[in-house]
Write a protein that binds this DNA or RNA. Sequence first.
DNA 1: TTGGCCTACAGGATTTTTCCTGTTTTTTGA
DNA 2: TCAAAAAACAGGAAAAATCCTGTAGGCCAA
Lengths: 217, 217
Amino acid sequence: MSNSKKYTLAIVDDHLLFASSLEKLINTFPEFQVLYKARHGLELQTEIKNNGTLPDLILLDINMPVMNGFETVAWLTENHPKIKVLALSVEDNEGIILKMIRGGAKGYFLKDIHPDDLKFALVEVMDKGYYYSERVTSTMVNALQPGAKEPMVKLRENELTFLQLACSEMTYKEIADVMNLSPKTIDGYRQELFNKLGIKNRVGLVIYALKNHLIEL
Amino acid sequence: MSNSKKYTLAIVDDHLLFASSLEKLINTFPEFQVLYKARHGLELQTEIKNNGTLPDLILLDINMPVMNGFETVAWLTENHPKIKVLALSVEDNEGIILKMIRGGAKGYFLKDIHPDDLKFALVEVMDKGYYYSERVTSTMVNALQPGAKEPMVKLRENELTFLQLACSEMTYKEIADVMNLSPKTIDGYRQELFNKLGIKNRVGLVIYALKNHLIEL
DNA sequence: TTGGCCTACAGGATTTTTCCTGTTTTTTGA
DNA sequence: TCAAAAAACAGGAAAAATCCTGTAGGCCAA
């Protein structure tokens, strides 16, 4: 690892207290220095445009207002592929991990990580280009197992819209009106989702949507 | 404020990275020093018992495994009433704020607070005994308005149990079996809850339970 | 003791959800 | 351009959810 110059990084997290605290912590690592912080992807974009220098590394929260982690990592991969992105989340969810890695993140870890491990992860990412914990590795292996199963459920645009509307107090008929479709079509979506997701009733839909962050409370 | 001696404090939060970072931040405040950290209420209890000295102040997260913020503040108020407790949460929810304050917390703030404001809050709490932000104050005023309304919906034991079971894929008949009651009684609970909570169907129940932390995902 | 109140429970009707199968329309790929 | 695949839609029926009103039994207070 280079000792000549500190690696610079940016922190993107809407929890100001966490971001500021983390900045303090990271600045105690001799190899790293926080360049700037942002509350969400959009703020990061303007920060990058205004501030002449790019960070070597970005610590990216996933749950954020305005522009979340998924959108942000997509934008970064598109516009600044050289910047390493480490995703940071409170949630240990396979779907989310895969989504971020597919989006271009070079690593993923939970907010309950030990500071020493964080430091190790930062060093790894700069040295080797990536850092994957055991948890993330096993998730990826599972996802790539061809024989086993394809747990990745793909929802069509309309199915997603229906699912989100089903998480309200609307009846299916009302949903059909909103979506400008026949109630029978809506019933088709419902049936299809029940099969795909392995659930039995509308409550199952709500639970699924919540667990997979397809809706917000 | 006393300059002779630093105030000591403990941090209780299951997110190790956040807790450690916050420790670093707070230790830069000349008036304060972090005595120890714990991942949840239970760990705090053993820490307090083992470690001879009590902290002056505890920063307490609400969402934690094993023993959450509500249980912890209740225990602290019961066993160590002299310790000031500041609740710390990601969620801006009136019900939660009131629950913590009723439990004995001397203040409440969100994790997106600015570090300077945190410092101010810490100082306030030690000097004046409490710190309430505008947000918290307005919440309390609302809650105490006698004429306006009583938004605090009280759920009976059975109603709560039913509500929680209703947030699953069980049918009402199955719920009746589990609770050893007639399906008609369950229907009565349902009707009563719909009226009390102003909702129209079972999805409304799920949403309500989630928003009020009556169930976990 | 009696009347009021509360909880559990019922009857019975209506609406909504859920299920199964089949048809028409649209889109897509060779 | 034509056939196959996908999407939208329908009929019909059973199951579950929702709604409304009413009753029986326990408890408590005047």
